[in-house]
């Protein structure tokens, strides 16, 4: 479903210097696969998710979504753009950046209204109940707590019935109870899910497969998640585990 070939990307720093973000990344993700993207801060996880969501275009390499190459030209195609934006959705690390409608209702309905579906109201109610945020439908989302905002964002994305869900550190704003709930919820979703995190406790329940980025922005490991998490040496090498001196 998703295939990256030799993807490299970098940023320009304030002194015009080259800051690499990703180096020669190859990966393939099948339909309904649940993948955990691991790596330390600054390893390039967020950049990779942004590339997968067609928000930035890699400097080098190719990205195929459902065997169509995804590049600037492809997303300029109105029809394709519409399909892609509906099918591949992205939950940003800070839900604040995604929220801009006057009420929770409008926030959830935003995408549905653009798609001109007939049962907007029914869908908004269904998803708001599923996330237990129905009582806030008339509240400005700005007013809610971090966890509730995240639920609003998830409802707004999932009501579009997407095929791929990209999540960037989804537990960052949640208390342990909500985190537990979220993991259970995601496990049951019949979607392709790619979750970026550096939280190893969380990772175990978020998928079967893992992609690990090294501090040098390269693909460090690709394969079975459980096997990786049980391999202490690999975890230390990827700087995901710290061995205490005591």
């Amino acid at each position: 479903m998703i295939k990256l070939q030799n993807i490299s990307h970098s940023f320009t720093g304030s002194q015009n210097e080259h800051i690499p973000a990703l180096k020669k990344i190859n990966l393939e993700i099948k339909e309904k696969e649940k993948v955990v993207l691991l790596g330390t801060n600054g390893s390039g996880k967020s950049t990779l998710l942004k590339i997968l969501n067609g928000l930035i275009y890699p400097e080098d390499g190719k990205y195929f979504y459902k065997s169509r190459e995804l590049n600037r030209a492809a997303l300029k195609d109105r029809e394709f753009n519409k399909i892609f934006r509906k099918e591949v959705v992205f939950l940003f690390q800070h839900p604040d950046t995604m929220i801009f409608n006057p009420t929770v209702y409008d926030e959830i309905a935003f995408g549905l209204r653009q798609l001109k579906v007939n049962d907007v109201d029914e869908k908004v109610r269904h998803w708001s109940e599923k996330f237990s945020i129905a009582k806030y439908l008339n509240t400005p989302p700005f007013r809610l707590s971090g966890g509730e905002k995240q639920k609003v964002c998830l409802a707004a994305l999932l009501c579009l019935e997407p095929e791929v869900l990209l999540l960037d550190e989804p537990s960052a704003n949640l208390d342990p109870r909500t985190t537990g709930w979220l993991i259970d919820f995601l496990q049951e979703l019949p979607l392709t899910i790619i979750t970026a995190t550096h939280n190893l406790h969380l990772a175990r329940d978020l998928g079967e497969k893992t992609l690990v980025l090294s501090e040098h922005h390269e693909m460090f490991y690709q394969g079975d998640l459980k096997a990786f998490l049980d391999n202490k040496e690999k975890l230390i090498a990827a700087n995901l585990l710290h061995v205490n001196r005591h």
């Binding site: 942004k50 934006r85 950046t97 801009f100 409608n101 707004a156 994305l157």
Partner: peptide
């Protein structure tokens, strides 16, 4: 964060954002 706001809008807009949406 500003960049993320711009990315999030791009990611969520399926067709084209209306002036009202942009104001919001």
């Amino acid at each position: 964060i500003y960049d993320d706001f711009a990315f999030a809008l791009k990611s969520r807009v399926i067709k084209r954002a209306q002036t009202k949406d942009l104001h919001n």
